[in-house]
Design a protein around this nucleic acid. Structure first.
Lengths: 222, 222
DNA sequence: TTTTAGAATGACCGGGTGGTCACCGCGCGG
DNA sequence: CCGCGCGGTGACCACCCGGTCATTCTAAAA
């Protein structure tokens, strides 16, 4: 979970890196596995090997600690989106979608705990704040896809008579569901995406991109 | 929440209908608004106007009570699916999808609390049991759509070269997202589906069905 | 070696939870 | 009109929570 340590009290910032990592990683693990409400400061503190008093000296409240952890997760996701966008600028639209999904899978592999926190927030609304921040994040994701869609339209790669917001919403929902099913057992309704093989993932990417581009209808081609 | 009272202890079953309804309705409301883990027997009991001892005489544990409530929700959803299937058997595939969505919206209007319980279970995994039951329900929904897809294929209404399971999964994910966004504020990323007008809903249905049938590509028509 | 600043600690607090059980009061049979 | 059985009751239990703070420990300064 390297770097990113403007969070916490002055005392926490002054700690040796190793200890900061140990504490922060334990927090990430706790929130990832139980969500905000059911995460326990007691069990967190046990896992981190520090005393209960200390964690409240490092982050004054549970809420503060969660904010710091969430900020890291959101930053990582934003970076990943930025990178994919710039890496795929030249690709045709379908390849772009495929790369986006592939990168999503690899992000989850690299940051499973942060992914869990991010998706938990997005989906379950289990957060210490209201809906505003969640809506903001969802709009961000949708806008990202809407811009991809705009570019595809301007290049003549897709139909131009579609509502960009609604379209982005629908495509986003497919992406999100697929990525969540990749690491959430109970979402994988028996199709082997969860903990599946790389070929399996590729097959899903292909099917999904084809679905987005052509739908189910008879009369399309490519 | 009428009928359906094989649940609970003998004592509960022997209660006057009115009281059974009062208690059961309070349980539904509690679980719907807080999910399983964060639902409180204390607050439930306060809302139902009975004493704490009583609820544990009617349903021995929180878990038992939840099972009963969930069973009602699942039964209602199954009935709704059955009804839609038989009502739309003659329709062309796109109209069928549209009717399915429309009925989904109206189910949510009629049973907002049961919908909340059902979706909460499906999405957040917040349940007193393992993943098996959730997977089972998801498979049910997917199979429902897969059969619709089969019929459409056999009538030549859609392409026949698609994997039925994967396709059903993708279509299901769109349906589910749309229905959830209809009553969950933080899922409606600013598009006015949540608490929107009837025209708004119709526009979404049209867009979604068109997306499923034709995708985004240039070269399709209908 | 002694003093002392400040970090680490865990017992403790008020308030919550799911669940229990000794008691109370009401209605029915005798 | 009495007595008894059974449903209703809420104080109580053990255990958890987030958060506090008086005390202890440690290590550097004097």
């Amino acid at each position: 979970m390297r770097d990113h340590f403007e969070s916490g009290t002055e005392l926490f910032k002054s700690l040796p890196l190793e200890k900061r990592e140990k504490v922060f990683d334990a927090a990430v693990a706790e929130f990832a596995s139980k969500g905000y409400r059911n995460a326990s400061m007691n069990s967190l503190v046990r896992a981190a090997g520090i005393s209960k008093g200390s964690i409240f000296q490092y982050f004054r409240t549970k809420r503060n600690l969660f904010d710091a952890v969430l900020e890291l997760a959101v930053d990582r996701v934003k970076n990943y989106l930025r990178k994919v966008r710039s890496d795929t600028g030249e690709m045709p639209f379908p390849a772009r979608l495929g790369t986006l999904l592939r990168s999503g899978f690899s992000f989850i592999d690299k940051h499973p705990l942060l992914s869990a926190i991010y998706f938990q927030l997005l989906q379950s609304g289990d957060a210490p704040f209201g809906t505003e921040k969640i809506l903001q994040l969802r709009r961000l994701g949708n806008e990202f896809l809407a811009e991809m869609f705009d570019e595809a339209v301007s290049r003549g790669e897709v139909r131009s008579d579609l509502d960009r917001q609604k379209t982005a919403f629908l495509v986003n929902s497919l992406m999100e569901t697929l990525l969540r099913a990749y690491y959430t057992e109970f979402l994988d309704s028996g199709l082997g995406l969860y903990k599946g093989t790389a070929q399996n993932r590729e097959a899903w990417i292909e099917t999904t991109v084809a679905f987005i581009v052509s739908g189910l209808g008879n009369e399309s081609s490519d």
